[in-house]
Structures are given as C-alpha cells and as structure tokens.
Design a protein around this nucleic acid. Structure first.
Lengths: 167, 167
DNA sequence: ATAAACTTTCATTTTTTTTTGAAAGTTTAA
DNA sequence: TTAAACTTTCAAAAAAAAATGAAAGTTTAT
C-alpha cells in the first residue's frame, strides 16, 4: 500500500467510525485528515481532499473547534486561515470525555434524578420504576465521577489506569 | 410528576441519548421501556406504548437480542412472546463494552495496523503519517485491553475501579 | 473609505437512515 | 393437516440528517 492510499483508507475508516459514535462523517473525516497532516491545512485544501463544499467544511470545522480538538492557525503574511488538530492522544481523549460528559451525561443525570424522585406509593410497577431509575442514576453518576477522576491525571492516564489494573 | 409522565420522560430521554451514541432512537426506547418494566412485555404492548409499527418493533427487538441485552420469555399457556431487558447494570455495561469492542474497535485496529505499516521512505509528510497512526494504534489497543481487563471483573467493576482510583 | 480575499450562514436540495405495512414465514393446538 | 395466532422480512415511503452554494458578513491592506 502506498501513502496516498493509506491516508485515504485512514480518513474513510475514521469517518465511518465517527458515524457509529454519533459524530457526523465529514466532521470525523476532517479530524482524521488534520490528525495525520504534519502541517496546518487550509480550508481550500480540506475541501479539495474530501471533495466537500465550502459551507460543509466551514460548519464542521467550527464544530470541531467548539469541541476544542481543532485549532485555527495564522501564518505570517497569509490572509487564509489554517487548521490543525490536537495531536496528543491523551489530551484528545480527555477533551472528548469532558465534552461528552457536559453535553450528554450531565443532562441525562438531571432527568434520572427527576424521574426517580416521584412518589411511588401504590403499585409494584411504580416501585420497580423508582428502584431501577435510582440504580441507574447511581451507576451513571459513579461512572461520570470515575471518568472525571481518570482524566484529571491528563498525561498518560491510560497507562496509569493499565498499571493500576495490572496490580 | 406522576408515574406515567415520569416513565414517558425516561423513555424519551433514553431514546435521545441513544441517538447521540449511534444507537437508533426506537431501539433505545424499547430498551428503556423494558428496563423499567417489572414484568415481561409483549410486542403488542411495546407497539402500543411507543406508537410504532410491528415491523419496527420486530427489527429492533431482534437487534437488542443480538446485542445480548434483551431476552425472549415464554409464558405458560401463551402463544405470544414476551421480552425483558437485562436489568443488572454491571452486566449491561459489560455486554455493551464487549459488543462495541468486537464490532467497532477490533476492525478499526486492523485498519490502523495496515495503514501504519506502509513503507515511509521519502517525505516528512509520510513519516508523520506513520508516526501518528502508529501512536493511534498503540493507544486504541491499550484502551481496548483496559476495557477488557475491567469488564473481566464483571460484578461491581465500576466500584472496584472507583476504589482503585481513590487510593 | 473601499475593494479584494476570505469565512459564515441558512434556505434548499440531496443523501442517509428509519419506519411502515402487507406478504411470507413459522409455530402450535386441535 | 390445517387454520389460527403469531413473528419476520423487505420493498417502498417517510423522516431525519447532512451537504450544497450563493448571498451576506468580516477582515485586512492600501
């Protein structure tokens, strides 16, 4: 396999993976492309390489920047903006974790707390509902806290985790 | 908030959360519904409660069973099939982890290995590509192994993890 | 102040994903 | 064996999500 083919395969695979994780294909592809580029890439080049429109490129770059995993870069004497991806994988994982926690887990916890707090007087059915949603709340809360603790380490959290678990 | 409202809110929220994680809305809703039901539910009742067609119910129940998180149940003297969800949350998390590892992480690793193995002779660009995809391969492999180790504990893995990390 | 060189926005179109429902298939009781 | 009571399948329809592209907006150099 030669370079161009490998690069393309990587970008396509990353894009497909994105879809399975609730991230849109183009967004994941742009991220993949930037990850393996050794220098910052212009919007023009991204459009060209992925064969996408200007609007699409712009919107997905904005989304990636909102996630804090892609940065704008300015080159001296250049009007155009260039983009780079966070390349440190520990940092990348931490940012994604934090963002998903904030956007998805925290709101879900709020709802779980609400619905598990109803007055479950009468039926078995209601008791089971309260019991199950309470357990779910506790579980998700604990998982979210573990994630928080783990990502606090920031550098090499994965290695540290592995070490802890090997003991 | 009264029971019916709470139940509905829970099912809707779980469904929305599903979408963000690459699981289709109905599948997540059926799972939510079964999770909080104290007894097995017939397909008819699922269709009624979620206002979905027979085909839709059938296909998503099949998918949930393929994931191993919903079971068929037969009641004596009943022709119809009834369904229950895995209610133990540790077990549920373990099954989801294993399944996603098998379906998504393992194939991604295969591609990463392939593309990081190209002959990177000439340019800086190629060297960076190989370097970055190699790092990614190592990272994902390590993460997958940690997930494996953790879920081996099965019961209370989350608590154990929390304890380890609090030390 | 202005125009060139860019980027962003958003109504519309396209693509993808999900849902429907009727026909085909299966199982069970008599 | 057969017919009633179910479930599954899958082509077609509907809905949802993503992409387009042209107009509007912004920035910078002069």
């Amino acid at each position: 396999m030669e370079f161009k083919e490998a690069k393309n395969k990587f970008v396509q695979t990353w894009g497909a993976l994105g879809s399975q994780w609730g991230i849109n294909k183009t967004m994941a592809q742009i991220h993949a492309l930037l990850m393996v580029s050794n220098e910052a890439v212009s919007m023009e080049d991204i459009m060209e390489e992925l064969q996408i429109s200007r609007g699409n490129a712009s919107m997905n770059l904005r989304a990636l920047m909102d996630w804090g995993i892609v940065y704008k870069e300015y080159k001296a004497g250049e009007r155009r903006e260039f983009f780079t991806a966070e390349k440190d994988l520990d940092e990348l994982a931490v940012k994604i974790s934090r963002e998903r926690s904030k956007r998805e887990i925290k709101p879900a916890l709020k709802v779980l707390k609400e619905v598990s707090s109803i007055e479950a007087n009468s039926t078995e059915e209601e008791k089971h509902f309260v019991d199950q949603t309470t357990k779910l709340y506790d579980f998700v809360l604990k998982a979210d806290n573990v994630l928080d603790k783990i990502t606090e380490y920031k550098d090499n959290w994965l290695t540290q985790l592995l070490i802890k678990f090997m003991k």
